[in-house]
Simulated assay, not measured.
Amino acid sequence: PHGEIHVQKRDRDTLEDLSGVTFQLTAKEDIYSLDGRNTLLYKKDEAVSMDISENGYYVTNELGEIHISGLPLGKYELKEVQELEGYVKNNKVYDIDLSYDHTDKIIYSKELDILNKKTATEISKVDATNEKELEGAKLSLRDEEGNVVEEWTSTKDVHIIRGLVSGKKYILHEDLAPLGYATASDVTFTVNEDGSVTKVKMKDEITKVDISKVDATTGKEIEGAKLTLKDKETGEVVESWTSGKEPHRIEGLTVSKTYVLHEDLAPAGYNVASDVEFTISDTGEVQKVVMKDEAKPVVVKTGDDSNISFYVAMGMFALGLIVCFYAKRKYGEKNDK
């Protein structure tokens, strides 16, 4: 009598046959011949090679199968020693008992249907503040050599990639951030080797601009200015507000776009400032924009206006009396003649 082992290797999710997976067969105990001579054939833990196998290694064929026949009866161990790239390593050791049971059976067989799962990597593109998934980011995944593995656009759901190589490093790159957000730095990660899901998170900072309306001389914030921010290209009003004691913050302006800050009405005592143009930089840091107002010149008074008017009036009255006096005097002299 002799033993046979049949292995079928498949993908756990698709049931696709997996070729090229390497297993090793070893003796779990000392195995002796049953021909009456009791010859030691294999020592415990010794590799068992049949046919063209060397050092007990067997590789699944194009149908995902391994056939081992002609084995002496006894107990064996079979383990996977080289998985396919992208699959989780299978560390299970399979005990195979082909021991003689004192029957007239000629063939002792063992069949194994072994399923392997691909690695799973969850990639999240989130808002740095609330950590909610962000839509519209164009992302790409590259290996260490710079080869593009996959490209996609983020949605409200986590993006799952299956089949990345365990223990290998990958680089997550943001090719284009969603509108109103700064481009995130690359994220480098290594795929888990223990079969657990690899979780990767890339955070995007929303753009932030602090707009200050200040006194041109003192540099202090001025209250009461009515301001408007417009998109330079379209002329569309982004926001209108009245300045206060603190800078006015606007979030979510588009990177690389130019905006125009316009003063609709200056505070009392100030001249209206010229428009200020600025372009949003690709950064999550707070960007600062300053509009300066010049104070109107102060008119210095040299006296009381009411007194000046009084003296002018009195002078005019006196001049009138003088004119009347001379006119009357000339009229009298004419009559005497």
Rank of each mutant, 00 (worst) to 15 (best):
G303P: 01
A295I: 07
S240G: 11
Y42T: 03
T14Y: 07
V21H: 06
L15Y: 12
P297G: 06
K232G: 01
E80P: 05
K28E: 15
T119N: 03
L261I: 06
K44T: 14
I96H: 08
S99I: 00
H67M: 12
T302P: 13
L115A: 14
L34K: 11
I250W: 03
K337M: 13
Y58V: 01
S212R: 09
E131P: 04
N116W: 01
L34D: 13
S196G: 11
E294P: 01
L84N: 10
K156W: 00
R37T: 14
Y311R: 09
K257Q: 14
A120Q: 15
N147F: 08
K296Q: 14
G320W: 05
Y94Q: 08
T207F: 10
T258K: 10
K288S: 14
L112W: 05
N130G: 02
T190P: 07
F189E: 03
G315T: 05
S281Q: 13
D97I: 09
V276F: 04
T279K: 13
V290G: 05
T234L: 09
S33D: 04
K230N: 09
K226Q: 13
H262V: 14
V7W: 04
T119A: 02
N271Q: 11
S306I: 12
T242N: 09
L84G: 09
S33Q: 08
T183E: 01
Y326G: 02
V290R: 14
A184T: 09
F23S: 06
P72W: 12
F325R: 06
G332N: 13
F325P: 05
V59L: 09
I52K: 15
V187D: 00
H67V: 10
E4C: 09
V88H: 04
D11S: 02
G36S: 02
I52M: 12
D45L: 07
T283F: 09
A327G: 09
K118G: 04
F310G: 07
L40M: 07
G3R: 04
E333F: 10
E239L: 06
T60L: 11
S185I: 02
E174H: 08
T39C: 02
L40Q: 11
K43D: 07
G284I: 00
N61R: 08
E233F: 00
H6P: 05
A182Q: 03
G224T: 00
G303T: 12
Y42K: 00
G56F: 07
P247F: 04
V81N: 02
A27M: 02
E277G: 02
E133P: 04
T103E: 00
I106C: 01
N91E: 15
D304Q: 14
S185L: 11
G20L: 03
F23V: 00
N130Q: 02
I308N: 11
K79M: 12
K199N: 15
S185W: 06
T242D: 08
H2V: 14
K9F: 12
K288F: 07
V165N: 14
G3M: 09
G284T: 07
K328P: 03
F310C: 00
I322P: 02
I68A: 08
Y100A: 11
W241C: 13
D210T: 01
G146K: 06
V286S: 10
A184C: 01
L112S: 03
K79C: 00
D275A: 08
D143I: 03
